[in-house]
Amino acid sequence: MKKILKNLALLLVFSLSFQQGFAKSNIIQLKGSDTILNLSQALTEQYMKQNKVRISVVGGGSGIGIAALLNKTTDIALASRSIKDKEIKIAKENGIDVQETILGFDGITIIVNKNNKIKNLDSITLGKIFRGEIKNWKELGGNDSPIIVLSRDSSSGTHEFFKEHIIRENNPKGTQEYGEKTLYMPSNEAIKKEVAKNGIAIGYIGMGYMDDSVKAISIDNISASSKNVLDKTYPIARAVYWYSDKNSSPEVQKLISFALSSEGQKIVNTEGFVPLK
């Protein structure tokens, strides 16, 4: 019995030492939006080159990131939508004073296959496509083919923003949903790859993921350019965020300051997003 108690005591000491060591470690955790995952990785990689700190960055979606912030399992939540009132309420109940940091701006880019003839859609028609009300490309002046609609999954902030502004036509009391045949994809890259190989698909991605493997179409005759996103003439433009606790560690605050610095904002631009200025 004495031997067992001694072993238990040693185990307890080891456990406490491990916890204390972990608590004192300088690992900064970031989690959330797939849309700004690459951007956040680029920012943190540069920051780590200049500072003795370890940083972990993982995706999962804006909702996942914000939930992690609320239950105190991440230092910074990556989000491509603004935090909701009910989430702020939960944060306060958990002793978290939410700090919102706008990293830059993004234009949700509507993409089709490079062989698709369509070059422009108006916002109302776009909503009808994603609600499943327009089902064939011939209704839009294209080929006689069904439209395959691709969307991000429900954990995505882009999913939420697109639903609010396009599917529900900016009506906060709207109840419209994505069409029942919508295919939900786990990432921007997944949507882009599917559109690139599927001649009848349509989807949306963050502008930072756009390349020549797919074709971007204008919305209301306005392209998703940096200028049009910054001056808010592009109809599906939005801010992208880091959310944290105002009472977070000095290291977390230093990282946020770096992201907002001229050096950090150059990285925002390099990664395909629109910097604050």
Results as ranks from 00 to 15, higher is better:
207 M>D: 02
212 D>T: 15
170 N>M: 13
235 P>R: 04
150 L>E: 02
151 S>T: 05
222 I>Q: 08
212 D>P: 14
209 Y>T: 06
270 T>N: 13
226 S>L: 08
259 A>C: 12
260 L>A: 09
259 A>S: 14
147 I>H: 03
269 N>Y: 09
259 A>T: 12
208 G>P: 09
248 S>L: 01
137 W>H: 04
218 S>H: 08
233 T>M: 07
185 M>K: 12
202 I>E: 03
145 S>V: 08
272 G>A: 10
151 S>Y: 06
167 I>A: 04
256 I>P: 10
139 E>Y: 00
211 D>W: 04
251 E>F: 00
236 I>C: 10
185 M>L: 12
264 G>P: 06
252 V>M: 03
253 Q>G: 00
153 D>A: 13
266 K>Q: 11
190 A>Q: 06
185 M>Y: 05
252 V>D: 03
178 Y>F: 14
228 N>R: 09
239 A>F: 01
145 S>F: 05
233 T>R: 15
259 A>Q: 04
195 V>I: 12
189 E>F: 07
211 D>H: 09
229 V>Q: 03
184 Y>K: 15
184 Y>W: 05
170 N>C: 13
160 E>R: 14
158 T>W: 05
240 V>T: 05
219 I>Y: 06
190 A>G: 09
226 S>N: 11
155 S>E: 08
194 E>Y: 13
160 E>W: 13
154 S>V: 01
192 K>V: 11
209 Y>M: 09
165 H>F: 11
210 M>Y: 13
249 S>P: 03
147 I>W: 02
265 Q>R: 08
218 S>P: 02
142 G>A: 08
247 N>Y: 11
234 Y>E: 05
187 S>I: 01
148 I>S: 14
274 V>K: 05
156 S>I: 07
200 I>Q: 13
181 K>E: 12
265 Q>V: 01
190 A>R: 10
160 E>L: 13
175 T>H: 12
162 F>D: 06
271 E>K: 15
264 G>F: 02
197 K>P: 03
227 K>L: 07
147 I>T: 02
145 S>Q: 13
168 R>E: 11
202 I>G: 08
157 G>Y: 02
201 A>Y: 02
162 F>M: 14
249 S>Y: 02
224 A>L: 03
239 A>T: 01
169 E>N: 15
199 G>E: 12
157 G>H: 03
254 K>P: 08
187 S>N: 10
239 A>Y: 02
141 G>I: 00
167 I>R: 11
156 S>G: 12
195 V>C: 05
251 E>M: 06
269 N>W: 01
144 D>H: 02
182 T>H: 11
219 I>M: 11
269 N>T: 14
196 A>F: 05
202 I>R: 11
219 I>A: 12
260 L>V: 01
223 S>H: 05
171 N>W: 00
233 T>A: 10
139 E>D: 10
152 R>C: 08
